[in-house]
């Protein structure tokens, strides 16, 4: 328990310093800072687009086909849009993109920083008066959150398109009916919850990856341990956090309905 609290405090402190570094507008290091953010956007975001697209397409097809097969005749065609909006776009999309980020980027970041620690590259940066947090953690955090937003957009577009194509082929659902039922299913609260999930989820998983990578001290045998710790912790965090947001949104929605 003490270790858990200690790690929580360390990650909170790392977050504080990283954010502080983000608002440190030093002209001298800006070009390399921006360059590093762009590199991270490419590494974390762009390179994940193919896998996110494929999973998005499959998610759209599978959910719509299953839904029509099981509930279609009972609930009617309008509910198909709600399935896409509520289940796929609001719940599945942040979760799947988050998991993909953990599998691809969290492990990569932890390994990279761990190796940098062992090869004393971080020490070399420190002695040159270069903050490792400003040039290693902050760009990854910014790039990670921005990438997660972009990956969600890609996932949603793919799931929406494939979901529509599936429903068109199965029950010949017109595009206007499908799209209007999707968009009408979204409330302001859903959009807020969706953004909170991506922003907080993205920030925390990247921070945890950096934290575990930087906590490697001397031996290369620590790297696999750090990677597995980072992957398990972020998976656990993401699942618990998203569940909390889900139930929180559900309760507020119920309260709003009862007020109406």
């Amino acid at each position: 328990m003490t270790k858990f609290i200690q790690e929580l405090l360390n990650i909170t402190f790392l977050y504080y310093v990283s954010v502080r570094m983000l608002f440190q507008f030093k002209r001298s290091g800006m070009r390399i800072f921006i360059q590093t953010i762009l590199t991270q956007l490419y590494g974390i975001g762009v390179r994940s687009v193919p896998v996110v697209s494929i999973i998005g397409i499959l998610a759209g097809i599978i959910f719509i086909t299953l839904f029509i097969g099981i509930f279609g005749e009972i609930t009617g065609v309008k509910s198909i849009g709600e399935v896409v909006a509520v289940i796929i776009l609001r719940e599945i999309s942040p979760l799947v993109t988050g998991f993909i980020m953990i599998m691809r980027s969290v492990t990569a970041i932890t390994t990279q920083l761990g190796i940098m620690r062992i090869q004393r590259e971080i020490e070399a940066m420190e002695v040159m008066g270069i903050s490792p947090i400003r040039y290693l953690v902050t760009p990854r955090m910014v790039g990670g959150v921005a990438s997660l937003y972009c990956l969600n957009v890609v996932f949603n577009i793919m799931a929406f398109t494939s979901g529509y194509i599936a429903s068109y082929f199965i029950i010949s659902l017109p595009f206007e009916v499908f799209s209007s039922s999707v968009f009408s299913a979204f409330s302001i609260l859903d959009i807020i919850a969706y953004n909170v999930k991506i922003f907080v989820g993205g920030t925390v998983i990247i921070l945890m990856a950096c934290y575990y990578g930087l906590s490697v001290s001397a031996s290369s045998t620590e790297i696999p341990r750090a990677v597995s710790q980072a992957a398990v912790s972020t998976l656990l965090f993401l699942s618990i956090f998203y569940s909390i947001v889900f139930f929180f949104t559900l309760i507020i929605n119920e309260m709003l309905v009862s007020v109406d």
Binding site: M116, Q119, R120, E121, E123, A124, M125, E126, V127, M128, G129
Partner: peptide, 14 residues
């Protein structure tokens, strides 16, 4: 630290 030049035995290069 900007005034220090530090040479690590194994280089410590990025």
């Amino acid at each position: 630290r900007k005034k220090i030049g530090f040479v690590q035995s194994y280089g410590g290069l990025l």
